[in-house]
């Protein structure tokens, strides 16, 4: 039964992410085992099981999650706990080595503001390319270009090649594009810094609007303030496992080690 009044919502499958016992194991090929020679010689020598000698990093182990439309999930954990890997799993970039991950909905991952940016071409062209990378069409991006240009306050600089931009200006451009799209699943990784304070205030509002528009948010950050603003539930990752999952405040309390 669907009581939704939004006609667009009825003919699309609901936005959700479900993982069951999902594991992400990275084989670490050292210079020797990453060559054909060694594999071939290994086969000839009859030592077929030599693949097991490749050291494996278990980045994620038995992650079972169910996120639905409307989820606003904070991702906390120490460095190397598996936050970024989990985001990439949720984005569909890493398909689980064991277990399953089902993602329905258009994903907009924002892990690195610089990726897909070309220093040699103009800011305007970069807006277009970055938008196409995020799954927008050329038409949709053309309709948004003016809005993005206004937001970035870069003016005529948008016609200059990106290599002439300062770091802060690049971040403005990237944030402008990223916050203009309509994602169904929004995955944010921290690292939205290097912007001046006034601009940050402005982008906070835009970021909040973006989160409002998106069906599902997962946000990894070390900033409690940011997390409280955007999220209501949380996942605490430790050593590649989900240590705790629940209300944001509860998880933050245990994560910080404060008495409940």
């Amino acid at each position: 039964m669907n009581v939704s009044t939004d006609p667009a919502a009825t003919d699309r499958p609901p936005v959700s992410i479900t993982t069951k016992d999902a594991c992400v194991d990275f084989p670490i090929f050292d210079a020797k085992s990453r060559s054909l020679k060694k594999t071939v010689m290994g086969l000839v020598g009859g030592n077929i099981a030599s693949t097991s000698k490749v050291p494996i990093i278990e980045a994620l182990t038995d992650v079972t999650l169910h996120l639905e439309h409307g989820s606003r999930v904070a991702l906390v954990g120490h460095n190397g706990a598996g936050k970024t890997t989990l985001l990439r799993l949720l984005a569909g970039i890493y398909e689980p080595t064991r277990g399953v991950a089902e993602i329905s909905g258009r994903v907009a991952p924002i892990f690195d503001l610089g990726v897909g940016m070309d220093p040699e071409i103009s800011g305007l062209e970069n807006i277009m390319i970055r938008g196409l990378f995020l799954g927008m069409t050329r038409k949709q991006m053309e309709a948004r270009v003016d809005d993005i240009a206004d937001f970035t306050e870069l003016g005529d600089f948008l016609r200059m090649p990106l290599r002439t931009y300062s770091t802060g200006m690049r971040v403005r451009l990237a944030l402008g594009v990223v916050t203009s799209i309509d994602p169904e699943i929004l995955l944010l990784d921290e690292g939205i810094g290097a912007v001046d304070a006034a601009f940050l205030e402005k982008s906070k509002q835009r970021l909040a609007d973006l989160v409002e528009r998106s069906g599902l948010l997962v946000f990894a950050s070390h900033s409690d303030e940011f997390l409280r603003e955007l999220c209501d539930t949380a996942i605490w990752m430790e050593h590649g496992r989900v240590k705790q999952q629940g209300e944001l405040e509860d998880v933050l309390r245990s994560y910080k080690g404060l008495p409940a």
């Binding site: 970039i93 991952p109 990726v115 897909g116």
Partner: peptide, 9 residues
Amino acid sequence: EGLIKHLPA
């Protein structure tokens, strides 16, 4: 590599 690791295309 960069694109593959950052965008699910």
